[in-house]
């Protein structure tokens, strides 16, 4: 695919806008792709709806706003309900299996994003980085090395270990859901 439209959606404060930016940085810096990242958010600093769109392309990107979504990641039921209808034919939705139920009839994959962050890493705040890893692992949007170095470039020194663990665990989870999907 020469163009992939990715959307990361959930609740304000989940860090999805940063996750979208890191994805774009990984694609641009490591793979030389053209990227455009846009956000939309409500007036709330925490809570409310939030989405981050990333277009990754080999071509020059003119339209900054994706018309359909090829890869949709949803961390809240509200985001799932709102955006599944914008999936392109053949588009896939990755949902947080702890708490989000996708509508039937879609290419849908449940990833344990919040579970991994809370239970395994004891820190809900890295759920966005886990989610980023999942996207990289499941769809190969960017390589593992690219996403890892992009994450490390964005986090403070003292949080590097935790975030590296989070992204690696996410990649692993992404690969798992991919192979499960392929088995179906």
């Amino acid at each position: 695919m020469s163009v992939v439209n990715v959307r990361l959606a959930g609740t304000g404060g989940q860090g999805l806008i940063l996750a979208g930016l890191i994805l774009a940085e990984a694609a641009a810096r490591s793979h030389g792709k053209n990227v455009v990242q846009t956000n939309s958010y409500g007036p709330e600093a925490r809570g409310g709806a939030s989405k981050s769109d990333v277009i990754i392309s080999d071509e020059v990107i003119y339209n900054p706003k994706p018309e359909t979504i090829d890869v949709l990641l949803v961390l809240s039921q509200a985001a799932c309900d709102k955006y599944c209808g914008e999936l392109s034919p053949g588009g896939a939705v990755v949902f947080d299996s702890s708490g989000v139920v996708p509508p039937p009839g879609l290419k849908a994959m449940g990833a344990d994003v919040t579970g991994i962050a809370v239970r395994e890493l004891s820190n809900e705040i890295v759920a966005n980085v886990v989610a980023l890893g999942v996207l990289a692992g499941a769809f190969g949007l960017v390589s593992a090395e690219a996403v890892e170095s992009a994450v490390l470039a964005r986090v403070p020194a003292k949080a590097k270990d935790l975030n590296l663990k989070a992204v690696r665990r996410g990649i692993e989870e992404g690969r798992r859901i991919r192979s499960e999907m392929e088995k179906k």
Partner: peptide, 9 residues
């Protein structure tokens, strides 16, 4: 606002 807030390479 779109140009100001969008990020690109």
């Amino acid at each position: 606002e779109i140009i100001a807030h969008m990020r690109e390479n």
